[in-house]
Design a protein around this nucleic acid. Structure first.
Ligand SMILES: NC(=O)c1ccc[n+]([C@@H]2O[C@H](COP(=O)([O-])OP(=O)(O)OC[C@H]3O[C@@H](n4cnc5c(N)ncnc54)[C@H](O)[C@@H]3O)[C@@H](O)[C@H]2O)c1
Ligand SMILES: NC(=O)c1ccc[n+]([C@@H]2O[C@H](COP(=O)([O-])OP(=O)(O)OC[C@H]3O[C@@H](n4cnc5c(N)ncnc54)[C@H](O)[C@@H]3O)[C@@H](O)[C@H]2O)c1
Lengths: 206, 206
DNA sequence: TTTGAATTGTGAAAATAATCACAATGTGAA
DNA sequence: TTCACATTGTGATTATTTTCACAATTCAAA
C-alpha cells in the first residue's frame, strides 16, 4: 500500500468535510477550483490529491459530489462507526462533548471519565461520566482505540501511559504537555497556544 | 530575509515552549537529542532547525537553555506583549479564556465579545465581555491585530469579515467553517474534528 | 599531554511535495 | 458536424524538506 503524505491526508479530510456540506446543499457536481476555493488550497493541488484516492472526474462536469465523498471516505478507511472516550470533564472537555457528537455521526464519544466525585455518574451533553479508576477496564471491555485527553497537564502523562497500556493507540491531546509514548501510538497535539503563537508570528513577522 | 518553512516555525514554537519549561526547572544546558525527545522530533531535525535561528551550541555542553530560548524568541519576532480579543463567550470560549492567560504572559486576551445580553458586561476568568456591536470600534481604537473566533459556525464568516475590515489580520478559527478572507489574513484553523479524524485514520489505516 | 567519548554543524544525498504546462476530453453553440 | 471553450489528469520540472554521515570541537580522565 502506497504511503500518503500527512499533508495530503489533512487536505483530504478537509475536502471530505466540504463535500459533505455540498451534499447537504444538494449540489451534485463540483470543479477542482471550486473545491480549491472552499478548502483554501490551490486547485492543482486538489487535483493532484484526488489522483491518490483513485476517483476520476470528467472535464465537462468536474466531480460528482456524492461519489467523490464516498471515495475519499473509503480511501481514508473511515470505519462506519468509531467509538472514542474523553478523559477530563472540565471546561474544555464539556465543550468538546457538546461539539463532537453534533459533527460527525461516524465518530462518537461514548463515555467520559473524571476523578472528581462531583462529576462522576453525571451526564454531560448526553455522555455518561465514569470514575477514572474504571478507565482501563472500560477500554479493554469495549476495545477502545482512540481517546481524547483534557485533564490538567500535570495528570496527562500518567493517564496517557495507563490508557495506552490498556489498548488505546490514538490520542488527541489538548494539554500543553508533550506525551512520551511508544512510537506506534499516534498522537495529535492540539495545543491552542501553539496555534495562537503561530498566528502572532505570521502576522507580526510576515 | 530567508523564508522559513511553516513546519520549521511549528517546531521552533515547540522547542521554545520546552526550553521555557526547562528554564523553570533550572536546567541550564540541553543537548539536541534531549530537545528531540521532549519535542517529539528527531535530533538531526532539531539541529537543522536551530541552524535557522543562528544560535550555536558547543559539542561539549550542547545548548545553553536561556540563550537558546531568547534566540528563538527573537527569531520568531515574538513581540514583548501581544493583545488579542476573543469573540464568542460560549463553552469553548470560556475554556480558552481560562486557559490562555495562564500560559504565555506575552500573549494576552484583553477583551471578549458576545451577542448574548446575559453575557455582555460580565467578567469571565478575569476578562470583560463587551457587546459584539462594539467590536469594530474596539479593534480600531486598540489597534488589535489578532482575534480568536469561537462563535457558532453560522456566524463565523460575517464576524470574520467585519473584524478584518477593521484591521485584524490574524485569526485563530475554532469553528468548522473555512473562512473566505483576503490572502493577507493569516488564518489558523483549529477544528478539533479534523484532528480526531486524522487520529482515526492513522490508527485504523496505518 | 594524549586519548576517547560525546556532541555539534553542515555538505551532500535522498525523499517528498508542489507547481507547471499541456494533451486529452467532453459540451454546447453555430 | 465543427469549433471554441473549460476542465481534467498527469508527465516533467522545480522546490522544499528530511535524512545521512562525518569532520570538527570540547572536555575529562589517564
Ligand atoms: N488546547 C486548548 O485549546 C486548551 C484550552 C483550554 C484548556 N486546555 C488544556 O486542557 C486541559 C483541561 O483544561 P480545562 O480548562 O478543561 O481544565 P479543568 O480544570 O476545567 O478540567 C480538568 C478536568 O480534569 C479532571 N481531572 C483532574 N485530574 C484527573 C485525573 N487524574 N483523571 C481524570 N480526570 C481528572 C478534573 O476533575 C476536571 O474535571 C488542561 O490541560 C488545559 O491546559 C487546552
Ligand atoms: N475546535 C473545537 O475543538 C471546538 C470544540 C467545540 C466547539 N467548537 C466550535 O466553536 C464554536 C463555539 O462552540 P461552543 O460550544 O462554545 O458554542 P456555544 O453556543 O456555547 O457558544 C457560542 C457563543 O457565541 C455567541 N454568539 C452567537 N452569535 C454571535 C455573534 N453574532 N456575535 C458574537 N457572539 C455570538 C453566543 O452567545 C455564545 O455565547 C462553534 O462553532 C463550535 O462548532 C469547536
Amino acid at each position: 500500500m502506497k504511503s500518503i503524505a500527512e499533508n495530503t491526508i489533512n487536505r483530504l479530510i478537509v475536502y471530505k468535510k466540504e463535500l459533505g456540506r455540498l451534499l447537504k446543499d444538494s449540489v451534485s457536481n463540483v470543479y477542482s477550483h471550486k473545491l480549491a476555493q472552499l478548502s483554501g488550497f490551490p486547485s492543482h493541488l486538489v487535483r493532484r490529491d484526488l489522483m491518490n484516492v483513485g476517483y476520476y472526474g470528467s472535464p465537462a462536469h468536474g466531480y460528482k459530489v456524492n461519489e467523490l465523498e464516498k471515495c475519499i471516505s473509503d480511501f481514508l478507511c473511515t470505519p462506519d462507526y468509531v467509538r472514542v472516550i474523553l478523559i477530563g470533564v472540565g471546561n474544555l472537555g464539556r465543550a468538546i462533548l457538546d461539539y463532537c457528537n453534533q459533527q460527525n455521526p461516524k465518530i462518537s464519544i461514548i463515555a467520559a471519565f473524571d476523578s472528581d466525585k462531583n462529576k462522576v455518574n453525571k451526564i454531560y451533553h448526553g455522555i455518561y461520566t465514569f470514575h477514572i479508576g474504571s478507565v482501563q477496564n472500560y477500554i479493554k471491555e469495549n476495545d477502545i482505540k482512540v481517546a481524547i485527553i483534557t485533564v490538567p497537564g500535570s495528570e496527562a502523562q500518567k493517564i496517557a501511559s495507563e490508557i495506552v497500556e490498556s489498548g488505546v493507540n490514538g490520542i488527541v491531546n489538548f494539554t500543553p504537555v508533550r506525551l512520551q509514548l511508544p512510537d506506534d501510538v499516534y498522537i495529535e497535539n492540539l495545543d491552542m497556544m501553539l496555534g495562537l503563537e503561530k498566528v502572532v508570528y505570521f502576522v507580526d513577522g510576515g
